[in-house]
Design a binder for these strands. Structure first.
Lengths: 355, 355
DNA sequence: TTAATTTCTGAGAGCGCTCTTAGAGCGCTG
DNA sequence: CAGCGCTCTAAGAGCGCTCTCAGAAATTAA
């Protein structure tokens, strides 16, 4: 694009509108901010001028006067984790956040951690640069310096996963990963599986930790007992699913719970390459219900989590804090759903039991 | 989080720093903006105070005074297209943009088109709200009202795909989709394939149009001739790959070029379900070189495009426009690379020829 | 030594808004 | 008809910066 450099097009100010409408700056301001005590006649007149010249208030001036930018940030200290291991997660979350931000006329700024920048500097930058009225934090390591700093700076924020340390000053929206994982395991047990393996997610992540916890608890409670040999440490990646599954095949598992769908895809591939049948030899269940879950053979049984809703809720809470001040931390736990497809063998379960 | 509502922590201003350093506001400003004509002694002193109190200038005040926000936007009028059909594309692009924006101390604002909002309103909003110094446009329909409006408003912008209408006022960075597609087809021809099908991308997208064009041209030039019966219209989705491939199987293709890797995955599945062997019966080539390309069987031959680089270049150009003004539109065409793996049958080509 | 130049610093206006304050106009009440 | 409250409007200060301008101090030139 090539703006004509000659363009002296200085955009309209409140003053200009006021002059054209024959009123004062204050009155125009009142109209724009939809305040009371403006006569209907004046209001119409001013609105007509605004409409006609296509005026919109200067956000910088407004921010300076109000000490608010009408801006929230999505802050991702560790980019690779959330951006790439679960490719649909991020765009979906973003869409939820964006929807709410748009509705409130807030701009959404994206702050991605940079490999050139340590997290402390990153945090300092986010806060010192008072561009953001609040932040949604995704994929923060439990010990990230960001959170204490945000607290210290009194900057409103909401996490989209369970925080590492409990605190009544940290708001978050999450799902019940423990229960969801438990559901998966109970489902597999009900289908007659006994040697149930787990491929964990990145254990710096509380979601991954909780899924592990739910898995353990449930096996213990069922009297089967969690067996560390059946737990392969992964990191939410395809590769870790593949490698983890290869290890678990050696351990003769008859089922595996993969901590996300990407990992599950890796596991499926490993099983395929090893000549194992799914679900007959090994049942597989994933997590997330990505579009790809239905694009593999057999189709993947998985846990659906409301990601868009997660983003939307986080944004709503944050905006509420910003607009109304907040008195108490807010925790939201969204429901999940086990989506039963072919890979867990629910369809062929009767057959198994009979044999 | 719960900010203590009691906190009257009014953050530092230039004036405060000036007072503490025993100099004037102007001098502090000069130090911060790294201007000349400040004595080394004063500079040190001021910097010490700034460091000590952790001061950072208020971006709103600065924006008001300079008429610049130090902010660029990534604008995506049609979210689903770029966000979901190619899950890795968007995060990768974003990372490239973010890297450059960070380096220049520009904030990155994300403007996603909203289903509740028609594109004209969306465009008006972007421009009227002068929050952005410039924009990177992704996944804009060729006839989007956004572009004429940006031109009209003299707002710097860069597209990350070839614009619909050529204009010497539109800057963009792209890849040579025509040539890349041509390369794919030539490769298949060289491998002895003759009935080469195409599953197109979303044809509202210029990338998709250009890949179609390259496909057509090359077949014509090779004397084989493009056959409309071998062209299935798709939309970059897995589904359209699956359905397109089913149609093309009927047409007895011996190779297929899928307009992206997602589509290619759908095609592979359709071939698998139909009992066709890849590459023996049908060779498959995709586009993008997503991580998933190596996660399918057989591994996918595909065209690699430098997506991160695309984002980085677009951001660099845009920032150059913003910081130095721009005199002439800038077009960048980045190179692509054909990544040969198993799905095109290059390995087994000798065998084919012999038989 | 004085004039001219260069280096450094501070004062002050202004960016475009919001918000407080004060005052004008109006219909009521007593 | 004085007094009150209500609705409406304008004036003006101030948000925290930048930038121009002018003047002081230091340096060089004449």
């Amino acid at each position: 694009m090539v703006p004509k450099s000659s363009s002296p097009k200085r955009s309209m100010s409140l003053e200009d509108i006021a002059a054209r409408a024959g009123v004062s700056r204050s009155t125009v301001s009142r109209v724009i901010n939809n305040e009371t005590y403006v006569s209907e006649h004046t209001r119409r007149q001013v609105l007509a001028v605004i409409e006609q010249v296509g005026y919109a208030p200067n956000p910088a001036a407004r921010a300076l006067a109000t000490q608010r930018n009408n801006t929230i940030g999505l802050v991702i200290p560790q980019v690779p984790l959330v951006l790439f291991e679960d490719p649909y997660y991020f765009p979906t979350l973003l869409q939820g956040i964006s929807r709410i931000a748009n509705a409130h006329d807030f701009a959404l700024v994206l702050s991605l951690g940079d490999s050139d920048m340590d997290e402390a500097r990153f945090a300092r930058r986010i806060i010192a640069n008072r561009l953001l009225d609040g932040a949604i934090i995704a994929s923060a390591a439990p010990d990230t310096p960001l959170i204490p700093r945000l607290l210290e700076a009194d900057m409103p924020f909401v996490l989209v996963e369970r925080p590492g340390q409990e605190s009544d000053r940290i708001s978050f929206v999450t799902i019940d990963n423990v229960e969801a994982a438990s559901h998966v395991v109970r489902h597999l047990i009900a289908l007659g599986r006994r040697r149930i393996g787990l491929i964990t997610g990145h254990l710096a992540n509380t979601d991954a930790q909780d899924r592990l916890k739910g898995y353990r608890q449930t096996l213990d409670e069922a009297g089967i007992g969690a067996d560390n040999n059946l737990i392969a440490t992964g990191d939410f990646s395809y590769r870790s699913g593949y490698d983890g599954m290869r290890a678990l095949i050696e351990r003769r598992v008859d089922a595996v719970f993969a901590s996300n769908d990407i990992t599950a895809r890796g596991a499926l591939q490993a099983l395929h390459d090893a000549g194992r049948r799914v679900p007959d030899d090994v049942a597989v269940i994933g997590f997330d219900d990505l579009p790809t879950a239905t694009q593999v053979t057999p189709q993947l049984t998985t846990v659906r989590q409301p990601i868009e809703e997660k983003g939307a809720q986080a944004a709503s809470i944050l905006l509420d804090f910003i607009e109304h001040g907040c008195t108490t931390a807010c925790r939201v736990v969204l429901p999940t759903e086990l989506v039963v497809r072919a890979s867990c063998g629910a369809a062929s379960a009767q057959v198994r039991k009979a044999s």
